[in-house]
Amino acid sequence: MNLTYFPRRHYTQGQTPLEKLTRFSQAIGGPNIYIKRDDLLGLTEGGNKTRKLEFLIADALAQGADTLITCGGVQSNHCRLTLAAAVKEGLKCRLVLSEMVPGSYNPQANGNVLLYHLLNVEKVNAVPWGTNLMAEMQNAAAEAIAEGRKPYIIPMGGSNHLGALGYIACAEEIMAQAFAAGLPIHHVVLPDGSAGTHSGLLLGFWGNNCHIPVTGVSVLNPKIVLENRIAELMQQTADYMGVNLKIAPDKIVCVDEYIGPGYTLPTADMVDAVRLLASTEGILLDPTYTGKAMAGLIGLAKQGYFKKNDNVLFLHTGGLPGLYANTPLFTP
């Protein structure tokens, strides 16, 4: 798929590593687990949103925007990276934060909240969980316009047809790395929140005639809601690119057994997965996304979801600052 027609900023030098997790694979009894280190992408503390923002920010700049407006949870990796991109480009940034737990936004908190303020966020509006976030962002945009600004709204997670282009690029990067290493990849597992990463990756594989199965581990929505959103976003992205999309619905696969009591709320399996990867490979996961997704991968492996000799690639989507906002979960 030819991405050269679409404006793009570049926030990462080269490719992110693709590593074999030998000791971790042994600890869970197989299969062969590999990891794509998108936690090492550019901008402040990295993460998958960097790839999406390369295309979104290019569009914002093309439209002459001077203020970015986006939304997310209180400890949002997407908000942190959007703010970092704004700093990089000399733009202002305003955030709408959704409090799953009432009153949970504390400007003195650690993790991403600390980084919002170090990165000099212009304004934060904390709203109750369930608030219409798009309406709140539109209100913020109207306020900015009244001040003589030119705002640009980026949806939650950067998950729209432009953001998905970032993971089409990632699919092509994975294919090139696997070819160079002589490594057949039999399956990809990733965290699924706002669906943009899964949509772009699966579309990228499909568009390059590569049929690696992708399983998303939901951290937010029920399986059916998430799969429908992925299908919708894949279609929107294909239409934007002028591609005739024909992908069977059964190729869009998610599991929702690892969400636990809710988005951002911890589970024992997540804590165990974070500890296991840290103690076997020295790689850190976050409690909201990658920790739950890795718990899902471990659970699927134990259920026989993969063949014992399969090469399974875990997409590390970052989120490390969230670990430091939840230290009591991991301390004795």
Results as ranks from 00 to 15, higher is better:
residue 216 G to V: 09
residue 70 T to F: 00
residue 269 D to L: 02
residue 203 L to K: 08
residue 144 A to K: 07
residue 109 A to D: 11
residue 294 M to W: 01
residue 285 L to K: 07
residue 288 T to R: 13
residue 319 G to S: 01
residue 97 L to V: 08
residue 142 A to V: 02
residue 233 L to W: 08
residue 236 Q to Y: 07
residue 188 V to Q: 14
residue 175 M to C: 05
residue 314 F to G: 02
residue 78 H to L: 09
residue 171 A to F: 06
residue 65 A to F: 05
residue 171 A to P: 00
residue 1 M to I: 01
residue 250 D to M: 00
residue 125 N to W: 14
residue 95 L to T: 05
residue 68 L to G: 02
residue 237 T to R: 07
residue 199 S to G: 10
residue 323 L to T: 00
residue 146 A to L: 10
residue 143 E to Y: 01
residue 273 A to D: 02
residue 112 N to K: 05
residue 328 P to D: 09
residue 191 P to A: 15
residue 102 P to M: 08
residue 198 H to W: 05
residue 312 V to G: 01
residue 183 L to Q: 06
residue 73 G to S: 13
residue 101 V to L: 14
residue 315 L to Q: 10
residue 178 A to C: 15
residue 111 G to K: 06
residue 13 Q to F: 02
residue 102 P to N: 11
residue 173 E to F: 01
residue 245 L to F: 01
residue 319 G to K: 02
residue 210 C to E: 11
residue 152 Y to L: 06
residue 103 G to A: 08
residue 282 G to H: 06
residue 33 I to E: 12
residue 147 E to C: 02
residue 194 S to I: 00
residue 24 F to I: 04
residue 121 V to I: 14
residue 12 T to F: 03
residue 320 L to W: 07
residue 201 L to P: 01
residue 35 I to S: 05
residue 212 I to K: 12
residue 299 G to K: 09
residue 99 E to H: 11
residue 299 G to Y: 07
residue 226 L to F: 11
residue 249 P to D: 13
residue 266 P to H: 14
residue 10 H to C: 06
residue 117 H to G: 05
residue 263 Y to D: 11
residue 315 L to I: 14
residue 137 M to Y: 09
residue 30 G to T: 01
residue 7 P to L: 14
